[in-house]
Amino acid sequence: MIPTANWTYPTAIRFGAGRISEIAEACAATGMKRPLLVTDKGLANLAITHATLDLMEAAGLGRAVFSDVDPNPTDQNAEAGVKFFRDGGHDGVIAFGGGSALDLGKVLAFMAGQTEALWYYGGLTAWNTRANADGIVPIIAVPTTAGTGSEVGRASVITNSETHEKQFIFHPKLLPSVVICDPELTAGMPQMITAGTGMDAFAHCLEAFSSPNYHPMSQGIALEGMRLVKDYLPRAFADGNDIEARAHMMSAALMGATAFQKGLGAIHAISHPIGAVHHTHHGTTNAVVMQPVLRFNREAVEERLEQAAAYLGIAGGFDGFFGFVGELNRSLAVPLNLTDLGVVDPDIDALVSSALADPSVSNNPVKMNAENTRALLLECF
């Protein structure tokens, strides 16, 4: 059965097949009259995007679209998008696509009414009190993949084009006012993207579940999110038009991003700099480094992952869980290591430095330092 529901946690979510038809209602609920649809270059000319623009135009909302979004969106993309937004006199953003489009769309909404350059507002500290909250316009998020969960996040990840580092822009009002999760929009997604985004959702749940921080609500959400990925990602990978599997993977993505309020860890601390420098797919990179990170964290997470394995129906405790991850990666054709992923001539010292500067480091179950992080990175190649 394909689920349909309305949720208000952590924001208003319209979940179900065909619910993109409610885009005009969602705009009305947020007060948007001249929205800008932000998507990526690959989606801009696809039928699902044109159909959404048709719905907007029929409702008198225009069909303005900005699609100059790189796979790892940059500050240059943001600057161009903000100019497009302001020049068009828009009053809200529809972020439409995968994590890249969602992150950039949210940043455009954030920057629409700010007066300083983007990096003045960078970082996760102090709830971004430097920002003019009244200058942040409404956001509607429409994910077309099932992985990042940016549609329910209060942050955007943007690459600094000068330093090639991924940095965070954070504000409570970056949480979209309305999310439309329509699994039909993900039908036919290529297998590689299905695998990478699905493993991103799994990584979010796994790292949140493993985080030493106290957050029982996130803990439970993370555990069930892992189960959904275990049960439905292989189905979505095998049949791109399995809408039931696609729906449950969209739920897993929402759950992973909600759960990681509890914190992420070494998987993301490593994946972020590799993606920024070598332009790898984020979720696929997470999948590639997942087993090395599990070995790295074993002493601190073994008992906890024994509990997870039991819930997931995986025999063998930690070793069984570890083996399951490897088998899942193999079944999804995930590269064996970072070399196979295409990371050539890496500057290990620079990657170590960037990994240790990543906010995820502080939440890893095992304390990370230059020596053990270097050893971990080398094991990933």
Rank of each mutant, 00 (worst) to 15 (best):
N160E: 08
V277G: 00
I48V: 12
A133C: 08
T258A: 13
F324Y: 15
A310G: 04
A131M: 07
D182N: 10
L351C: 04
P183K: 11
D200C: 11
V38C: 07
H281M: 15
P138W: 10
I267V: 15
G275N: 03
D358T: 04
V293S: 02
I94A: 00
N329K: 15
V178A: 04
P71Y: 09
G99C: 02
P346T: 12
D347C: 13
D345Y: 06
L102T: 03
M32T: 02
F202N: 02
Y214Q: 10
Q76F: 07
A24G: 01
T129L: 13
T129G: 01
S210R: 03
A112F: 02
R246F: 08
A155H: 03
F96W: 11
Q114G: 08
L376I: 11
Q291L: 13
L118E: 10
R19S: 08
A259G: 05
N369A: 11
N369D: 15
R154Y: 02
R154V: 11
G147T: 10
E224S: 10
I270P: 00
F170M: 12
Q114L: 13
F15T: 05
T280C: 14
A80V: 01
I267C: 15
T148A: 14
F381A: 11
F66Q: 04
A357T: 02
R63Q: 14
S177M: 08
T11D: 09
L185P: 01
P138S: 07
T194V: 11
F96G: 06
T49M: 11
N297Y: 09
G88W: 08
S353C: 03
A126W: 12
A257T: 10
G99T: 07
T197Q: 04
P3W: 06
E22K: 13
M189G: 00
K33L: 09
N72T: 14
L376N: 06
D68S: 14
A333D: 15
G149P: 09
P35I: 13
G92D: 05
N337H: 10
S251Y: 05
L351S: 09
A95H: 05
I169W: 08
V289G: 03
G92Y: 06
S21C: 07
H204Q: 11
V289K: 04
A245S: 11
A12G: 00
G99E: 07
D91C: 07
I193S: 00
A259L: 07
L108W: 05
A315Q: 12
P71W: 05
A58E: 14
T373D: 04
T4M: 06
A12H: 15
A201E: 05
P365A: 10
V137P: 00
M226P: 00
P359Y: 05
N213C: 08
G62H: 12
I158F: 07
M32R: 02
M199T: 02
E244K: 10
G18T: 12
H164E: 14
M32I: 08
T74E: 07
L36V: 09
A131L: 11
E306P: 00
I169T: 09
E57S: 15
E207F: 01
L223Y: 08
A133R: 14
D239K: 13
V229Y: 01
F84W: 09
V352H: 00
M111V: 12
I2V: 15
Q291Y: 01
Q114H: 10
G220L: 09
A357E: 07
